[in-house]
Each structure stands twice: as C-alpha cells, then as structure tokens.
C-alpha cells in the first residue's frame, strides 16, 4: 500500500493514544464503580468521605439541657414540649463558643407558622389552636403576652 494511506492512520492512532494518556492523568485514580456497578455507581470514591465530613450545624435539644436546665425543664412540661429548641433559636453550631449567644427570635412570623388558623381537616394542623394573625393583637409581639417556653393560657 502507498504511504498516503498509512499516514492518516498513524495520525488517528497517535490521537487515540494521546487522548488515553490525558485521560489517565486527568481522571482521579479512585474513579471506579463499586457495588452498584457502572450504571449507578461510577464515581470518584473519595467523594463519599468528603460528604461524610461536611460539618453538621444542628446539635439537637439534648445538648441544651446541660447549660440551660431551666428553659429545658419549663419547655418539657409545656404544650410546646415537642418543638426542638433550635427551631426557634437557630442552629447551635459551636455555641456557646461561636456564636456566643443564639438568636432570640421574637417575631410573630415564628409563631404563626403553626398558629395561623387554616382549615386543614385531614392534617395535624387542625389539632393546633389557631388565631388570625391579622386580628389577634396585631401590633404586639406574641412573647409580650405568651411565654413561648410555656404557652399555657392559665399561667399567662
């Protein structure tokens, strides 16, 4: 065969080898498929560990007991016992180191999430006493009258 047939073939082979070399260097060594096979499990294996190391921000209410025993005890006996502290005070992160204080959210928006009166017959919402936020003591904060840690109407 003539040379002019061979030359393009060598170029193609050279290209293929080049691309494979680049791929070898560029793709991380731990790119592989595990139990899930190639269809669903082909990935950089170390990424799983990276996700596991993502910092957690919520500490959950048990953490607060140690330093805020009074609030914890009051809340535990109240009708609000099921609400985690951090829902109202924000994620604890490294509190009390950073942040030193957690936010004290006195906004009406916090309470009307649950207490705005909606007609929801087939959901748990119907079991929560509701108010109309546009009518119930409009210009004041809920916590001026109600104790968020113990909302009992008798003990107001």
């Amino acid at each position: 065969m003539k040379n002019h047939v061979w030359r393009p073939l060598f170029v193609v082979i050279g290209l293929v080898v080049f691309i494979l070399l680049v791929r070898m260097l560029y793709v991380p060594v731990d790119f592989n498929a595990q139990e899930k096979g190639y269809t669903f499990g082909y990935h950089r294996l170390s990424n799983e560990q990276e996700w596991k190391d993502y910092p957690a921000k919520y500490k959950e209410s048990g953490y607060c007991l140690e330093c805020h025993p009074e609030n914890t005890a009051t809340l535990a006996e109240s009708a609000h016992a099921m609400i985690p502290c951090e829902n109202c005070h924000g994620a604890a992160l490294q509190h009390p180191d950073a942040p030193e204080l957690l936010t004290v959210d006195r906004s009406r928006e916090l309470c009307v999430r649950c207490h705005s009166s909606l007609f929801m017959p087939s959901s748990g919402r119907s079991a929560i006493p509701g108010i109309d936020p546009a009518e119930h003591n409009v210009d004041e904060l809920c916590s001026d009258c109600h104790n968020p840690h113990n909302p009992s109407l008798e003990e107001m």
């Binding site: 829902n87 994620a91 748990g124």
Partner: peptide, 14 residues
C-alpha cells in the same frame, strides 16, 4: 404534617 416549614428552614441552614 402541620406545614410549619421548620424542616425546610433546618435543611437550608444545615
């Protein structure tokens, strides 16, 4: 579910 949305807020912050 009562639609309080604390799950959405918690997820976004976390």
């Amino acid at each position: 579910c009562v639609g309080c949305g604390f799950c959405v807020k918690g997820c976004k912050i976390e």
